[in-house]
Design a protein around this nucleic acid. Structure first.
Length: 595
RNA sequence: GGCCUGGUAGUUUAGUUGGUUAGAAUGCCGCCCUGUCACGGCGGAGGUCGUCGGUUCGAGUCCGAUCCAGGUCGCCA
């Protein structure tokens, strides 16, 4: 007799012993002893052992003999306590088993290309092609469930604080400033294109003008740029905007949100407020605007210690406005020469032309190819500045400040990994505040907005907008967790004059500004409230919470590094007819690539 | 666009200075097995060595090109 599912496999306990249950799930494993068959049956909740024996199961036994991995079964049977010798402590339901009385094969399955279990080491090609099997693995299901929990907690937290979730358009206007847009041709407007949003930035600001006061949206965003472990062409943001607040109000609200999420989803208590670092300080001490604060190894400025030496290389760089900085890799004075050569190459990736080193031997003597350029006193000063003790290794980069920061910042992370200094259980939150408003683009020969051009300059810096954009700092803040930027936002400009000055500072003429953002400028003339907000990268946040190395593991159907989907084969060729309707002709030779 | 790593049975992989029939584990198939949970025993099938071209008497191995995946620099307001 066919019965409806009564329980989940993974949730059965000793409580159910002696009762009849009906389970539905997939065959994780079959162990056939000839006259007795064990089936590990798996559903979303977990695994339970089903025992099929001729004396209790009758005709079900015959069916069980032909069952294979990943067959879909419905099993009715009686829950029984296992005898002491047969208890399996490795699974949650190991103290019980289900003695089948009836079994129905709901569907057969081909032999899967890989094991449906955790910790499998399978090529990403195969995992992505058979994503539905990859997602059937418990750890992947756990990731998606965690993601669901987090977005629910976000909605709960924001709802109780009077935020309104509003949807903004997916088909919107291209704004070439910033990342490349994904474009969508318009059939009814020949030759014209929509852009998929890089973020709902302008819409959420307009929602503030509209008087929503507190807005949020869990929203897909699109950027047509190269992919990374933590970058996908479509990704999800928790987008937030508030009126009548300052930066502190927003940061405080977001600390509360993050604490609520970590408590609710992982049971972890966070200590707020988080550490605050100015951008200048973060760059100086860690060489990064998203420092990993789970370990120390700060960058040390050696300019004073090396002053007056005979080392022409260092002197020339300092005279040209450069820096000499170092990190102290504790206890690594015994590094192999070969590895040291590798480090020179490593910093080269980031534009550093060299890497100098000083080892402090166990007897306190110095070993270094640059030691000869310094007097004994100078060497002593360098060792002291670097707080180097016997057995330590000092690594120096001398270059323009940006390159020193980049190279030494990356080297700091690399050495921490090699020295195993990173506590994977640690959660190091911080705010990086006071970003520069602009950075100079060598490529475009002009200043560009570091955050985005709607970010408000600090009040005291507005006076320099026209004369010296380089010294203007912004009311911008990033939330950093374990060296990853998980959120970034700012107080916005709500006055038209200031917005105009900012546009002009980045070389945007009145006409261009009007053409690109005229509707925003117009809106600002109708009582725009002071406002600000933030956007969190949901994928990155979940990635860290799930302790995964890539956001691909927390996105159900991610793209490969070349932005394709191995399961659906997107993107693909389309019919001539479709292109004609869209008034589009490509200049790519047919069948030139891809098969 | 640059640099780096990898591509060998379904899967994970070994493969030496180029040399006979490309080896293992696991999975799969068949037979046996009533307390296993990485079940066990016996037997078996399964490979265009990513693709194309070149060097060579001979290429999984060397060279060139190319495709795919991953990492990374640039890029990502």
């Amino acid at each position: 007799m066919i019965k409806k599912r009564s329980h989940h496999c993974g949730l059965l306990t000793k409580q159910e012993a002696g009762t009849e249950v009906t389970l539905c799930g997939w065959v994780a494993k079959r162990r056939d002893h000839g006259g007795l068959i064990f089936i590990d049956l798996r559903d979303r909740a977990g695994i339970v052992q089903v025992v099929v024996a001729p004396e209790s199961a009758g005709e079900a036994f015959g069916l069980a003999e032909d069952v294979r991995n990943e067959y879909v079964l419905r099993v009715t049977g009686n829950v029984r306590l296992r005898t002491a010798e047969t208890i399996n402590t490795n699974i949650a339901t190991g103290e019980i088993e289900v003695v089948a009385t009836d079994l129905e094969v709901l569907n057969a399955s081909k032999t899967p290309p890989f094991y449906i279990q955790d910790g499998v080491d399978v090529d990403e090609n195969v995992r992505l092609r058979y994503r539905y099997l990859d997602l059937r693995r418990p750890e992947m299901q756990k990731n998606l469930i965690l993601r669901h929990k987090v977005t629910k907690l976000m909605r709960d937290y924001l709802d109780t604080r009077d935020f309104i979730e509003v949807e903004t358009p997916m088909l919107t206007k291209s704004t070439p400033e910033g990342a490349r847009d994904y474009l969508v041709p318009s059939r009814v407007n020949p030759g014209k294109f929509y852009a998929l949003p890089q973020s709902p930035q302008i819409f959420k600001q307009i929602l503030m003008v509209a008087g929503m006061e507190r807005y949020f949206q869990i929203v897909r965003c699109f950027r047509d740029e190269d992919l990374r472990a933590d970058r996908q062409p479509e990704f999800t943001q928790l987008d937030i905007e508030m009126s009548f607040v300052d930066a502190e109000d927003i940061m405080e609200m977001m600390e509360g949100l993050v604490a609520f999420i970590f408590k609710g989803a992982l049971g972890k208590d966070l200590v707020a407020p988080f550490q605050r670092l100015t951008w200048d300080e973060a760059m100086a001490r860690y060489g990064s605007d998203k420092p990993d604060l789970r370990f120390d190894m700060e960058l040390i400025d050696m300019s004073a210690a090396i002053a007056g030496s005979d080392f022409k290389v260092f002197n020339a760089i300092v005279e040209a406005g450069g820096q000499v900085k170092a990190i102290n890799v504790k206890g690594y004075g015994n590094i192999a020469r070969r590895e040291l050569d590798g480090l020179v190459e490593f910093v080269g990736i980031y534009g550093a032309k060299g890497l100098a080193w000083i080892m402090v031997n166990e007897d306190g003597s110095i070993k270094s190819p640059i030691a000869k350029f310094f007097s004994a006193e100078q060497l002593q000063a360098i060792v002291q500045a670097g707080a180097a003790e016997a057995g330590d290794l000092l690594l120096f980069v001398a270059d323009k400040p940006a390159i020193v920061a980049q190279a030494l910042g990356a080297l700091r992370l690399e050495m921490a990994k090699r020295r195993n200094l990173i506590d994977e259980d640690k959660l190091a939150f911080a705010w990086v505040v006071n970003f520069p408003m602009f950075e100079y683009s060598e490529e475009d020969k002009r200043y560009v907005a570091m955050h985005h051009p709607f970010t408000s300059p600090r009040d005291e810096d507005i006076q320099y907008l026209a004369t010296n954009p380089g010294r203007v700092y912004a009311k911008a803040y990033d939330m950093v967790l374990n060296g990853t930027e998980i959120g970034g936002g700012s107080i916005r400009i709500h006055r038209k004059e200031v917005q105009k000055e900012v546009f002009s500072a980045i070389g945007l003429s009145d006409e261009e500004a009007k053409e690109k953002f005229g509707f925003l400028m117009d809106a600002f003339e109708f009582g725009a409230p002071p406002h600000g907000g933030i956007a969190f990268g949901l994928d990155r946040l979940i990635m860290i919470m799930a302790k995964r190395p890539s956001i691909r593991d927390v996105i159900a159907f991610p793209k490969t590094q070349s932005a394709t989907c191995l399961m659906t084969q997107a993107p693909n060729d389309v019919d001539e007819k479709q292109l004609r309707e869209l008034h589009i002709r490509t200049n790519v030779a047919k069948k030139e690539h891809k098969e």
